[in-house]
């Protein structure tokens, strides 16, 4: 009887969080799946049941969703292979305890604190084809003919990279801070012992620090990839009305179709994004798990 009461008490204490978790997080996912099977011309009108037609339509020429997915994957790859190594490098450098550590930490973290809209407008000015920093720099270096006359954002060949540079730059400080916190948690005795044995800085980082902060690196990779797949705000500033921009990403299309009488298409995009994020999270965990097992051997 006493045990039963205890179970009820635990359940009652968990209930509010459970209701919130299901109501705010789980239910919208199921609702998105349901909506994706209908036309949904307005929020209140489900319209005609179309089955999986929305998913098929997404990949035709009109919606061009395939291109958006490829762009998101390119952004995810750039985040993992450029953003995170940069963050790790900075974190290792600052974690060693250099002079002015706090100052540099604040400087690198500042872009994270600035609104994405402000960063977008700032970089838009940098890329401006008439008076931007890039154009003026190229003029000074006599390489102006190497730049497209439309500007980096106006040329489809350069626009993708031009948009992704600030997107990646903004969150270098965020991942750096996560890794820096992990590095600071590593016992200084381990580092000193290795140094006494003649290990160089590089060897200490490679064989001691990085293996210890591997769980944080894993979290950073998950954040970087899922963040890239869901990226919206900064890209929206560059894309303006988002028609036919060469750097369209899934979220941009999702918002556009959600408010342009195509709720079913928008929901199908949401479901695909959920599946992609889920798949990547499982993949990353699996990759890190394999290494743990190997390490144990």
């Amino acid at each position: 009887m006493h045990k039963k009461n205890k179970s009820i008490t635990i359940f009652l204490f968990l209930l509010p969080a459970l209701v919130l978790f299901i109501g705010i997080l789980i239910w919208p996912i199921f609702a998105s799946v349901h909506h994706s099977l209908y036309q949904y011309p307005t929020f209140s009108d489900p319209g005609e049941f179309v089955g999986f037609q929305n998913y098929i339509d997404l990949f035709n020429k009109q919606y061009d969703f395939g291109k958006a997915v490829v762009n998101a994957l390119i952004l995810a790859a750039l985040s993992v292979f450029i953003q995170l190594p940069l963050s790790l490098g900075l974190a290792l450098m600052l974690g060693k305890g250099i002079k002015g550590e706090r100052f540099y930490l604040s400087v690198y973290f500042t872009p994270v604190l600035i609104s994405a809209v402000v960063i977008g407008m700032l970089w838009e000015k940098i890329y401006n084809p008439i008076y931007g920093l890039v154009v003026k720099g190229a003029e000074a270096l006599n390489i102006i003919d190497k730049l497209p006359p439309e500007g980096l954002l106006g040329n489809p060949k350069t626009a993708l990279l031009a948009v992704f540079i600030p997107t990646i730059w903004q969150y270098v400080g965020y991942h750096m801070l996560l890794m820096y916190a992990g590095i600071k948690g590593v016992s200084s005795e381990l580092r000193e012992a290795a140094m006494l044995d003649g290990a160089t800085d590089g060897q200490v980082n490679r064989y001691i620090i990085i293996p210890i902060i591997k769980p944080i690196i894993k979290v950073s990779i998950i954040f970087a990839i899922t963040g890239s797949l869901k990226s919206y705000d900064l890209i929206k500033v560059f894309a303006k009305d988002a028609y036919n921009c060469s750097y369209k990403v899934p979220s941009l299309l999702l918002v556009r179709y959600a408010f342009h009488n195509a709720g079913g298409i928008a929901s199908a995009i949401a479901v695909i994004m959920i599946v992609m994020c889920f798949a990547f999270a499982i993949l990353i965990n699996w990759l890190f798990k394999e290494r743990d097992l190997y390490g144990k051997k």
């Binding site: 899922t226 949401a270 994004m273 994020c277 889920f278």
Partner: peptide, 8 residues
């Protein structure tokens, strides 16, 4: 991850 996407 699911929660993040659903929130988004």
């Amino acid at each position: 991850v699911l929660s993040l996407v659903a929130c988004g």
